[in-house]
Design a protein around this nucleic acid. Sequence first.
DNA 1: CGCTATTGTAACATAATGATACAATAATAA
DNA 2: TTATTATTGTATCATTATGTTACAATAGCG
Lengths: 242, 242
Amino acid sequence: MSYKPADEINENGTGFIKNVAIDTVIFGFHDNLLKVLLSAYKNTNYFALPGGFIREMENLYDAARRVASERTGLDDIYLEQFYVFGDYSRYEPEPFKVIMEVNGNKPSKSHWLLQRFISIGYYALVDFTKATPTPAAIFDSCNWYDLKNMPELIQDHSKIITKALEALRANLDHKVVGYNLLPESFTMGELQKLHETILAKKLLRPAFQRKMLSLCILERVAKKYSGGAHKAPYLYRFVSEV
Amino acid sequence: MSYKPADEINENGTGFIKNVAIDTVIFGFHDNLLKVLLSAYKNTNYFALPGGFIREMENLYDAARRVASERTGLDDIYLEQFYVFGDYSRYEPEPFKVIMEVNGNKPSKSHWLLQRFISIGYYALVDFTKATPTPAAIFDSCNWYDLKNMPELIQDHSKIITKALEALRANLDHKVVGYNLLPESFTMGELQKLHETILAKKLLRPAFQRKMLSLCILERVAKKYSGGAHKAPYLYRFVSEV
DNA sequence: CGCTATTGTAACATAATGATACAATAATAA
DNA sequence: TTATTATTGTATCATTATGTTACAATAGCG
């Protein structure tokens, strides 16, 4: 989880469920690179996944959406619950203690943020260009990092990202990926590049096109007369399911 | 979750993490029927999944194992975390209030068991014949029920079972299922019947055998000279992965 | 010693996927 | 205008996986 001083700073975390956090792995896509949104704590070397907590009367999924929306400015994004991280060894209050102290707070040992947390992992896929990374509060910054070039993260957050990527890859076959990662309309080549980036391997163009079209989730919009010296590709969009 | 009076009866649930429960969907297999283990609360009409809570210093997975082991008498069983149920609408304290009252307790409104719970779902597959269903405490009974013939369950427990079955079916392809569901050695026909029961559809024998053998997870042990008036089938066991 | 039920697997049919080839064409430059 | 170039859309074939039928092998039974 990440530290949100705005309203969670009070000693006993009134209004939130204790010992449970949501951690979001928000993937973005740019220049054929998968990016991930990370929060950095000011005045420390601590980097963490954007996280948050569940309000006492809030649906779990709504809480995940709220967290993702707060950090990206995007509503209506594809969110998937992928795993719960609940090892006791996750309990490492030291970083949070330091973060609070560095920022002028002196939490008691029983401060709710210094207790053990079970963390529910959600991943999201967003359009890199439409998202406006927003830090959770004055203490945070929030930025995109290449998946291949991340800073060291607190706790088990690296493992969480690995697990999220595994879940995302496993879902590429069944579920449609790209609703929020790609612009409204896109070429088959762009969709393929996205899949190639997520899977970290090259795909064969004819087979990919054949498969995508066989799923009946794409519809042709127009031709894209904009690019280079070659045949104009078709633009597609996801068919709206009604 | 289910109600365990033995040590969770105290008003504030000392030693347990609050607002988080584990619900287990324990599948057993018998007579080509999938069974599921259900707890019944004495003196009420309430049926529920075997559930439990996480001790303050206990790993989440260990807690799930403990719950499953306590209810089946089986250790070392295949357990898989499949989903977290966290809608606020799950909050229905009435059944638990009744259960406690019927059994001679008068919980206050702030009793920790009457609060909202986020429930982490695990499923397990056990050998029906080796399991000894054990109620959680004096107030409970614990029995196998056909998946097709279950009593009405409290809260969203029916949905939890549905979701568990979906996860189990989705995993049949990738993961090996049957370590704990089948005896030490078994015939290809028995394995096929198990798969057919889980998937609720017939499979073609040659294709099934070809596929299973291609996975290289089975080894032939011997022939089974015991059955009826026909060719003796081979016995297989899962290769120990080392 | 045949009969029966079931197994193990070969053999073929069909479908899915992998790989190659090539015509179509939008921009560019001669 | 026309040749050039890069890339797209798709046809075609190869390979692999899966679905289906067929049949020999054989343990128990009468």
